[in-house]
Design a protein around this nucleic acid. Structure first.
Lengths: 154, 154
DNA sequence: ATCAATGCAAAGGTTTTGCAAAAAT
DNA sequence: ATTTTTGCAAAACCTTTGCATTGAT
């Protein structure tokens, strides 16, 4: 996402363009494929602007999620995480995640295999799907071998 | 899940069978289709055994998740919730959820549309999937109409 | 000039932990 | 008899909020 587009989105909503908001988005954009927590964004942002406060990070990510500029994800480790979204597209294509139960590694991927399910949900229950999230858990390639030897005894 | 099976699972792992553990599982089992928080389980359990402590609920749900007796789910409202799992089955069939963004209603459903995706993930990345969770957000039948009238102005 | 956004510190809410007492094996 | 589990309270934790100050329009 270009900075100018982001500024336009802010102004369109009557929100002010601040250095802190630009910095938070830039920080997330500079770490593609990572799923940063508020604390991590804070630490990274402080390197460029040490006066920034943690509360500003929390308030800013709320705004960014609201604007569909970033997505909120959770891997059930007690942290809420954020990753770049794709606000400009009409049809959202969220990342899906495969989380290794052993080493915690996260594999991200895309895929629109849910369209038939979403249509069926509308037809049967009248539910209009606007967003979806697929979370897979299991064992990554490196941990699969180890897992098998452990599981044998159970 | 029958209580005897649960007792057997506990003993198999060297864990002790306590009235509190039986009560927590019973409480969750008695509320099918609801996704209870720790606090809600606590309030319900107190009706039957008023001496029980909230810390025991937290410790017990951790055990139950570990044993695959219950599943942990989150609808991003700040609460971790729990629902009955199906530990006995070799292949887990989790509930999927459609969460209404307006009224918060949760529609649960099942479906194994992810098998081809999971196979593909193994073939391409060596990732062995053991669990999956699909979370859809949107608008339920009752809220869909209202949503349309709201969205027209945007 | 006005109104929103920030930074700090304090408060909020959920979840975890330390420890002595109680319960299960 | 031994070891785990419980209950209570305190602590830890992430996140939100109040308020005066700063910054954007």
């Amino acid at each position: 996402m270009e900075q100018d587009l982001f500024k336009a989105i802010l102004r369109e909503r009557g929100l002010k363009v601040t250095n802190q908001r630009l910095l938070v988005l830039e920080t997330i954009a500079d770490h593609p494929g990572e799923h940063l927590t508020a604390e991590e964004i804070y630490e990274l942002a402080k390197d460029k602007y040490s006066e920034i406060g943690l509360a500003t990070i929390y308030r800013t990510v709320q705004v960014l999620v609201e604007l569909n500029v970033i997505d909120k994800v959770s891997f059930d480790d007690g942290f809420v995480r954020y990753e770049l979204g794709n606000a400009a597209e009409v049809k959202r294509h969220h990342h899906h995640h495969a989380i290794c139960k052993k080493c915690g590694k996260v594999l991200s991927f895309e895929g629109d295999l849910l369209e038939t399910l979403e249509q069926a949900l509308y037809d049967t229950a009248g539910f209009t799907v606007t967003d979806h999230e697929v979370k897979l858990t299991g064992y990554c390639r490196d941990c699969t071998k180890e897992k098998e030897s452990v599981r044998k005894n159970i």
